[in-house]
């Protein structure tokens, strides 16, 4: 063990203290990840449906929202959501709430496009079969179309989730504490590359878990064509 601490040129107590902070940072990053994932996926379904709306204004507004979200930096959006209300109206935002809000509206825009492609890939005949059997439009969408969409959008959605794991680091721009924040501060205070390497390994591990989960999901849905 002494050899290890010699190698990283760090006192054991310093190392353990850093690891403890890293653990906390990891949990905070996971918190951002889970809230964003859970909220942005259903919102993404809504975005996809609104974008496909036959009412032109609804579809146009949705498209414009997606253009802004996908066409400007997420960092800028975080800043805007956190500080915009204060600068404009003197309203102070809760930091964590602002962070989640910015992530959710950003990711829902991307998910909207993925789900839209998935929904459009289901043959018209499936809707017609649903209609002729007497299902309502809502029943046809939720029981017949959506389950098939899930199978088709799983790979691109998994990819987006991997990006989200790493994007949680962007919360740093509004000083929302999380893993990257810890890595940056401890690397500076100890003048060591170790915190950066440890953070990198943790991000990689989280990504690997997400990747494995989606891979598992894909295999589970392999029972039909």
């Amino acid at each position: 063990m002494d050899f290890f601490f010699d190698l990283i040129r760090m006192k054991p107590e310093t190392f353990y203290s850093i690891m403890e902070q890293m653990l906390e940072g990891t949990l905070q990053a996971l918190e951002i990840f889970v809230y964003t994932a859970v909220l942005s996926v259903p919102l993404g379904v809504l975005v996809a449906v609104l974008r496909e709306s036959k009412l032109k204004p609804v579809s146009a507004v949705t498209r414009f929202y997606q253009l802004i979200m996908r066409g400007t930096p997420l960092m800028l959006q975080l800043m805007f959501v956190m500080y915009g209300p204060y600068y404009m109206f003197g309203i102070g935002m809760n930091r964590f709430f602002a962070c989640i809000l910015a992530f959710v509206i950003n990711y829902a825009a991307y998910f909207g496009e993925i789900f839209r492609a998935g929904i459009n890939s289901i043959p018209q005949g499936q809707y017609e079969a649903g209609k002729v059997l007497g299902y309502t439009r809502v029943q046809t969408f939720f029981h017949i179309v959506l389950p098939q969409v899930v199978k088709r959008v799983l790979p691109p959605t998994g990819s987006e989730f991997l990006v989200l794991v790493k994007d949680t680091a962007l919360a740093n721009v509004i000083a929302q504490p999380q893993l990257f924040d810890v890595a940056k501060k401890t690397a500076g205070s100890t003048v060591s590359v170790v915190p950066l390497i440890v953070a990198g390994i943790i991000y990689l591990l989280m990504s690997a878990v997400v990747e494995a989960a989606f891979n598992h999901g894909e295999r589970k849905l392999n029972y039909y064509q």
Binding site: G125, Q126, E128, A129, G134, Q148, K151, Y224
Partner: peptide, 15 residues
Amino acid sequence: LDVGLVFQNFQLFPH
């Protein structure tokens, strides 16, 4: 509900 239709390409629900 009084009408049934059989499609050319079946349109069974694959899932």
